[in-house]
Design a binder for these strands. Structure first.
Length: 868
DNA sequence: CAGTGAGCGAGCTTCCGCTTGACTT
C-alpha cells in the first residue's frame, strides 16, 4: 500500500497541513535544521580533530568543504524521521521555499538517503487548493539555492571563528565577533560616541495663547523682521553652534524679554491662512520586525518576550507564523480583514479596493505571509477568550491587520500666520474629516480612539486681518538633547532596514550582545560597554569592510547571484578568505601587528585618563596630585552603571582621588583606606607613620571591586593572617592570602616554616586547625609530588617510566616529557600498558606533525600537501 | 605608588539561522 512521508519544519505546520492531505500521508517535522557545522570542541569528530581546520569546521585547504554533524538535540528527530521513512513509498520534502528551507530539504536528503521516489514540494498558503496544487507541481531540489545557503553558512563561520580568537588574544577571552553582532555593536558604539561629542546648545522662544470665538489656541514666534528664529534642528550636534550656512536667528533671554515687552503694545493680526487637504494611509500588516517594534513601544515587551508570546498564539491557532519578513496577505485573509471592517466599522470604512503591500526591507525572502489572525474568519479579540499579555498582543495584531484594509484617513491641515509688529507667529491646526483606519490603529499610539482627539489641533475660524486677543504670552527656554540611545525596537528597525539578521534572529542578536558584555539593557535602552568600544575600535581599524553596515547587503546580492547561477560560490569564498585582502591574511597580519595592550584600552580625547579593559571589568587609569603636590599615577574601578557616553571629568576625579577613606575600624579606632599600589588595589589600616610599625595591608581579591567596597569587607581582609592553633609537632599554624592565593603557614620556629596552598573547597576565613593539619600532612605538591594513580614502570623500548598521575587538570598519562590527558570516564583498573603506549605514540606522532607543519610555514610558498 | 610561600599535562572560548521542548530556578 502507498504511504507518503511529508517533512516540514515545524510540528504546528505539520498538524495544519495534515488536515488537507489524504489519509495515507504522514507528516513529520524536522524542527528546523538537522545538520550543522560543529559548534565547539565537543562536537568535532575524533577522526578530524587533529586537522588544523577542524576547529573551524570548514576545510579551508580543500575547497571549503564543510564538516557537517547532527547536533545532539537533533539526533532523536533524525532517528524518528529515519524510522518513519522505512515504511514509506514516497518522500515529500515540504520545507519553506527560501534559502534556508531549501537547504533543510537538501540536508534531509543527505541524511536520510531515501531509496524511494523523493520530491520537493512548496506552498505559501495552507489551504486545500494550494496544497493540492503543490502536490501536482513537485520539483527537484534547487541546488543553486542550496549552494547560496552553504556559502552564507561558511562565510559566517569563517567571519566568526577567525575574528573571535583574535579578540581573545588582543582584548579579552570569550569575546566574539560576527557579521551581524559586530555591526550591531558598532551601531551602539557610534551612537554613544555621538552622545559623548555632543555639545549642548540653548535658545529661547516665545509662546502665546490666543482666543477667538471662545476657542483658545497656541502660537509660536517664527521670525523677526523676516529672519527665522532658530530651533533645535538648526544646531550642529558636534559644536553646539548653528550649522554651517544656517541663517537663523538665535535669541537670548534678554532679547526675548525685550520682545515680550514690545509685543504687548502691538496688535496681533491674522496675516495669512492656508488650508490643505491631506490623507494618511494605513501601514502594512506586521512582519516579525514591526511586531517586535510595536510590542516594544506599546506593550513594553522585549523582543524575546514578544516572540515567546507570539509563538504561544501561533501554536494555539490564533495567529499565522510569527517569523516572517513578508507583508503579504493571502486572498482569504484580505477578505476576512475586510469582513471585519464592514461588520465592526461599516462599509464606508473599507478601502476602495483590497490593499496590497510590498516589502521594503532589503533581503526579504518572503516564505510566509504577514503576521495576522489565523483562519478564514478573524476572531475579534473579545471572541478569543485570551487574557493578559496574550490578549494585548493578539489585539495589536488584529487591529493592524484589519486597519490595513481600511480607508485612508482624510485630514485638513491649517496653517495660520499672525503678525505682531516686527514679529511673525505661526500656528498649525489639524482636523480629521474622516477617521478611516485611525479608528482601528495608529502606529506608535496605545489607544486609537482617544488619540483621535489628541491628534486634532483645533483652530478657530480665522480670516485675514482679524485682530486676536492674547490671554497669555511667555518666553520659553530650550536645550538641544544628545541623540538617544537605541531601544531594542530602534535597533531591530535599523537591522531590518539594512537587511542585517533574519526574523528568527532579531531577538537573539540582542541576547548575544548583552551576554558577551557588549551592552547593558536598562530601562528599555541598550547602552554599549567599554569592551564594546575597545572591540569596535579594533575591528574598525583592521576590518573596516566587515563591520560596515552595507556588508550584509553586499553579501546578499552575491548570494542572489549564486542562487540564480550568475556567480560561482568557490571563487567568492576564496576572495573573501584567501584573497590578497582576505580574512585569513588580515587576521594573521593583525595578530602580529598589534600591541594588545593598545586594544584593551579606550581613549577619551576630552578626559585626562584612559579606561583599560581588565579581567575584572573596566579600570580607570590617570594621574592625580598627591599630598606633596607631585603628579602621581592613580587607578580605580568604574562603577557598574557607568557607560562610556556618560563618563565625565567629575566622575573621573572622584574615582582617581584617593586614598579613599572607607571608615574607621571600631577595634583600633584607626582609619581604613583603599589605595593603589604597583600590584593593584589594596586596603590599609591606619596612616603611614615613620615612628610606628608598618600599617597592616591586604590586597583586594579579584572578586571585589574598588567602586563598591565596604568597610566590613575591608576589615575582613585586614583580619588576615588568622591564627588557627598549635601544631602537635610544635609551632603554630596560620591561614593567610598571598601571591598565589590562600595558603596555610606552619611556623615551626623563628627560622623554619612550611606552607601549603589551600584547596579550592577551603575558605581562608573559615578553615580550622583540623583541616589545616590534614593539608599539611599531604605530600608537598611539586616535582614528582603529583598523586600517582598507577605506575607501569619502564618498558624496554622506553627511556622513562610510564605513570598515570592525578593533577590540576584531571587524570593524565606521563612518560618523560610527554603527557596525555585521559578521558574522565576511563576505568583505570582496566587501563593497560598497551593502552598507555598507544596513547603516548599517538601524541608523539602529533608532535612531529606539528613540527613539520611549522617548518612548512617558514619555508614560504611550498605547495601544501594533500592529506594522506 | 605594598609585600610576599610554589612549581608546573591543557584545552576551550567563538559565528548565523532554522526549529522545539527539556532542563533548572
Amino acid at each position: 500500500m502507498d504511504h507518503t512521508l511529508v517533512i516540514v519544519e515545524s510540528p504546528t505546520k505539520a498538524k495544519t497541513i495534515r488536515k488537507f492531505l489524504p489519509s495515507n500521508y504522514e507528516v513529520l517535522a524536522s524542527m528546523g535544521h538537522v545538520r550543522d557545522l560543529p559548534k565547539g570542541a565537543a562536537e568535532i569528530p575524533a577522526a578530524v580533530k587533529k586537522e588544523k581546520w577542524s576547529r573551524i569546521g570548514v576545510n579551508t585547504t580543500e575547497d571549503f568543504e564543510p564538516l557537517y554533524i547532527v547536533p545532539k538535540d537533533k539526533k532523536k528527530v533524525v532517528k524518528e524521521l529515519k524510522d518513519a521513512l522505512k515504511g514509506a513509498t514516497q518522500l515529500l520534502l515540504a520545507t519553506d521555499e527560501d534559502r534556508e528551507g531549501e537547504s533543510i530539504s537538501w540536508h534531509l536528503l543527505q541524511i536520510l538517503k531515501p531509496k524511494i521516489p523523493t520530491k520537493r514540494m512548496v506552498f505559501h498558503e495552507i489551504t486545500k487548493k494550494a496544497i493540492n496544487k503543490a502536490l501536482d507541481q513537485t520539483r527537484e531540489i534547487d541546488m543553486e539555492l542550496v549552494q547560496a545557503q552553504e556559502t552564507r553558512r561558511i562565510l559566517d563561520r569563517l567571519f566568526g571563528y577567525e575574528l573571535s580568537p583574535l579578540l581573545w588574544k588582543k582584548v579579552a577571552p570569550r569575546l566574539s565577533a560576527g557579521r551581524v553582532q559586530s555591526v550591531s555593536v558598532r551601531l551602539l558604539v557610534r551612537r554613544e560616541r555621538e552622545r559623548r561629542s555632543f555639545k549642548k546648545a540653548s535658545y529661547w522662544g516665545i509662546r502665546a495663547s490666543l482666543v477667538k470665538d471662545n476657542v483658545t489656541f497656541e502660537t509660536k514666534l517664527f521670525s523677526l523682521n523676516g529672519q527665522r528664529i532658530s530651533n533645535g534642528a538648526d544646531f550642529d550636534e558636534q559644536t553646539g553652534k548653528l550649522k554651517q550656512g544656517n541663517k537663523s536667528l538665535i535669541i537670548g533671554e534678554e532679547k526675548v524679554n525685550d520682545l515680550l515687552n514690545t509685543f504687548s503694545s502691538e496688535d496681533w493680526l491674522v496675516s495669512k491662512i492656508e488650508k490643505k487637504p491631506s490623507t494618511r494611509k494605513p501601514v502594512p500588516p506586521f512582519t516579525t520586525s514591526t511586531l517586535q517594534q510595536e510590542a516594544n513601544r506599546k506593550l513594553r515587551l522585549s523582543a524575546r518576550e514578544t516572540m515567546r508570546c507570539a509563538q504561544g498564539l501561533y501554536e494555539r491557532g490564533f495567529i499565522t507564523y510569527m517569523r516572517t519578513d513578508s507583508v503579504h496577505l493571502s486572498e482569504q485573509a484580505t477578505r476576512a480583514a475586510r469582513e471585519c471592517v464592514s461588520s465592526m466599522y461599516g462599509k464606508e470604512y473599507l478601502s476602495n479596493s483590497p490593499r496590497k503591500f510590498n516589502s521594503t526591507a532589503r533581503n526579504a525572502q518572503e516564505a510566509h505571509e504577514a503576521i495576522r489572525p489565523a483562519g478564514e474568519v478573524f476572531k475579534t479579540p473579545k471572541e478569543t477568550n485570551l487574557t493578559g499579555r496574550d490578549l494585548s498582543l493578539y489585539d495589536l495584531i488584529w487591529k493592524r491587520t484589519v486597519a490595513s484594509q481600511m480607508a485612508e484617513a482624510r485630514l485638513t491641515m491649517i496653517n495660520a500666520e499672525i503678525s505682531v509688529g516686527d514679529g511673525l507667529f505661526k500656528s498649525s491646526g489639524k482636523s480629521i474629516d474622516f477617521a478611516g483606519f485611525f479608528r482601528a490603529y495608529v502606529e506608535g499610539s496605545d489607544d486609537p480612539s482617544s488619540s483621535l482627539e489628541q491628534q486634532e489641533i483645533i483652530l478657530p475660524n480665522l480670516t485675514t486681518g482679524t485682530c486676536l486677543e492674547v490671554t497669555n504670552k511667555e518666553s520659553t527656554f530650550h536645550e538641544t538633547k544628545p541623540p538617544a540611545r537605541y531601544t531594542e525596537a530602534a535597533l531591530v528597525k535599523v537591522l531590518e532596514k539594512e537587511g542585517i539578521g533574519r526574523p528568527s534572529t532579531y531577538a537573539s542578536i540582542i541576547g548575544t550582545i548583552v551576554d558577551r558584555g557588549y551592552a547593558n539593557l536598562s530601562s528599555n535602552t541598550l547602552a554599549p560597554t567599554f569592551t564594546a568600544f575597545a572591540v569596535t575600535a579594533l575591528l574598525e581599524e583592521h576590518f573596516p569592510d566587515l563591520v560596515d553596515t552595507t556588508f550584509t547587503a553586499k553579501m546578499e546580492s552575491s548570494l542572489d547571484e549564486i542562487s540564480s547561477g550568475n556567480l560561482e560560490w568557490l571563487p567568492y569564498l576564496e576572495t573573501f578568505y584567501k584573497g590578497k585582502n582576505g580574512l585569513e591574511v588580515k587576521v594573521q597580519k593583525t595578530e602580529g601587528d598589534i600591541d594588545g595592550k593598545a586594544y584593551r584600552q579606550v581613549d577619551f580625547e576630552d578626559l585626562p585618563c584612559v579606561v583599560r579593559i581588565g579581567s575584572n571589568g573596566p579600570w580607570l587609569e590617570g594621574t592625580k596630585i598627591d599630598e606633596s603636590g607631585n603628579e602621581i599615577q592613580a587607578k580605580g574601578n568604574l562603577p557598574m552603571d557607568i557607560t562610556p557616553g556618560d563618563l565625565d571629568i567629575r566622575q573621573v576625579d572622584q574615582i582617581l582621588s584617593g586614598p579613599s577613606d572607607l571608615g574607621t575600624d571600631p577595634k583600633t579606632g584607626e582609619k581604613v583606606f583603599l589605595r593603589f599600589g604597583p600590584y593593584g588595589p589594596y586596603v590599609q589600616l591606619g596612616n603611614n607613620d615613620q615612628d610606628k610599625a608598618k600599617p597592616r595591608r591586604a590586597s583586594l581579591p579579584k572578586e571585589l571591586r574598588t567602586d563598591d567596597l565596604t568597610l566590613d569587607e575591608a576589615l575582613v581582609l585586614l583580619s588576615l593572617p588568622r591564627l588557627l592553633g598549635v601544631h602537635p609537632e610544635g609551632g603554630v599554624v596560620e591561614a593567610d592570602r598571598g601571591r598565589f592565593g590562600p595558603y596555610i603557614k606552619w611556623i615551626k620556629n623563628e627560622n623554619e616554616s612550611e606552607n601549603r596552598s589551600l584547596k579550592k573547597e577551603d575558605d581562608v576565613f573559615t578553615v580550622d586547625i583540623k583541616r589545616a593539619l590534614e593539608i599539611l600532612a599531604m605530600p608537598k605538591m611539586g616535582r614528582g609530588g603529583q598523586e600517582v594513580l598507577k605506575d607501569f614502570g619502564k618498558p624496554k623500548e622506553f627511556k622513562e617510566k610510564i605513570q598515570i598521575l592525578n593533577g590540576r587538570y584531571g587524570v593524565y598519562l606521563k612518560c618523560g616529557k610527554t603527557n596525555v590527558s585521559i578521558a574522565k570516564d576511563t576505568e583505570l583498573e582496566k587501563f593497560s600498558l598497551d593502552d598507555a603506549i598507544f596513547l603516548l605514540e599517538e601524541k608523539l606522532k602529533d608532535k612531529k606533525g606539528s613540527i613539520s607543519k611549522k617548518t612548512k610555514i617558514s619555508n614560504k610558498k611550498t605547495t601544501s600537501k594533500k592529506k594522506s
